[in-house]
């Protein structure tokens, strides 16, 4: 595997390889000197067409800890704002010798387009494309679940994961559904019907409109950010009604099993999809997810640029 475009591209073995590698990377991060020489002399470009400070910093930290040279290219204040096309930007980066391009874009499919176009020779890592996918987020979420629920080993077979909120517009939800299915978890999407895509019944997961019915059985509750502008598009009547029906407040959280964890990809709307006391509770893994993001992205860059995925793929065949 040369690129990571979709969480669905990963076989179970490949996904576990990423998680295991991330675990090793995390161990190394406990050392005083965090930097590894692995990608010395390699160049990783962060090509960000959308503002996303947390994802960009996470990739940047990951690449730097592997000793790669990092070029940050953000669309704002760049040649893109002067009207440069996606193709020309990609060709420019290629000319500078990018070994990997981490791309974040508001258009669904931008990462796949970049990977298939031949405009860049290196690996393409999808750091979020429109409302399509965000595979490294799903990997770091799976890593977090495994640490909290499975002592950091094995897959997630039989674990019950509820993903709650704006599934329709969520790349995090799409990647999580694909990866969690690969890892054996039972996923239930919970949302008002307006925020579920047409055809969701063909996804490898269950669907519910009723959060209260799902919570008592869940091992994991993952809340998705609700954008306030969805209200004006009549996806739901008001933020208050959304919170009443789908928000995780302390009362609802009390219905959870003691061991259940609460996740959020951030940034949160406190008081909308998640109450402050839940976000700050022991169950919450929100800050941990951020830390795990660096380890997982180190693993992804290490495996893609090191060619380790290719061998694992060969073994499966």
């Amino acid at each position: 595997m040369r690129h990571l475009v979709s969480a669905g591209d990963l076989s179970r073995d490949e996904a576990l390889l990423v998680l295991d590698t991330a675990h090793e990377m995390a161990g190394l991060q406990q050392r005083e000197i965090k930097k590894l020489p692995t990608l010395r002399g390699r160049t990783v470009v962060n090509l960000f067409y959308e503002d996303s400070t947390r994802t960009r910093i996470s990739f940047e930290a990951a690449a730097k800890r592997l000793s790669a040279d990092v070029i940050n290219f953000s669309a704002k204040g760049s040649s893109v704002s002067k009207g440069e096309s996606f193709k020309d930007t990609a060709l420019t980066l290629q000319a500078m010798g990018a070994d990997a391009v981490v791309v974040r874009h508001s258009a669904s499919g931008a990462a796949q387009r970049l990977a298939a176009s031949g405009w860049v020779g290196g690996s393409v890592v999808n750091a979020g494309d429109g409302t399509h996918e965000h595979p490294t987020q799903a990997l770091l979420d799976a890593y977090t679940m495994r640490r909290r629920l499975n002592a950091g080993t094995g897959d997630l077979a039989g674990r019950r994961v509820a993903i709650v909120g704006d599934v329709l517009h969520s790349r995090v939800a799409r990647s999580n559904v694909l990866l969690l299915a690969t890892l054996g978890a039972d996923v239930t999407l919970v949302a008002p019907p307006t925020l579920l895509p047409i055809g969701v019944e063909s996804w490898p997961c269950a669907v519910s409109y009723d959060l209260d019915a799902v919570l008592p059985k869940a091992d994991v509750v993952m809340l998705l950010r609700v954008q306030r502008e969805r209200m004006s598009e009549a996806y739901f009547p008001s933020a208050r009604e959304y919170t009443r029906r789908y928000g995780l407040d302390a009362t609802r959280a009390a219905a959870l099993q003691d061991s259940a964890i609460v996740m959020h990809p951030g940034p949160m709307n406190r008081g909308v999809e998640i109450a402050a006391e839940v976000a700050d509770s022991e169950r919450s893994t929100i800050v941990e997810q951020v830390a795990n993001g660096v380890s997982v992205r180190m693993a992804v860059l290490y495996l893609l640029l090191g060619g380790a995925f290719d061998t694992s793929k060969e073994q499966q065949r």
Partner: peptide, 15 residues
Amino acid sequence: QMNEGALSGVLGLRG
């Protein structure tokens, strides 16, 4: 962006 159906939901393209 494309026909609305199961595929548009998977591809994240508005139907």
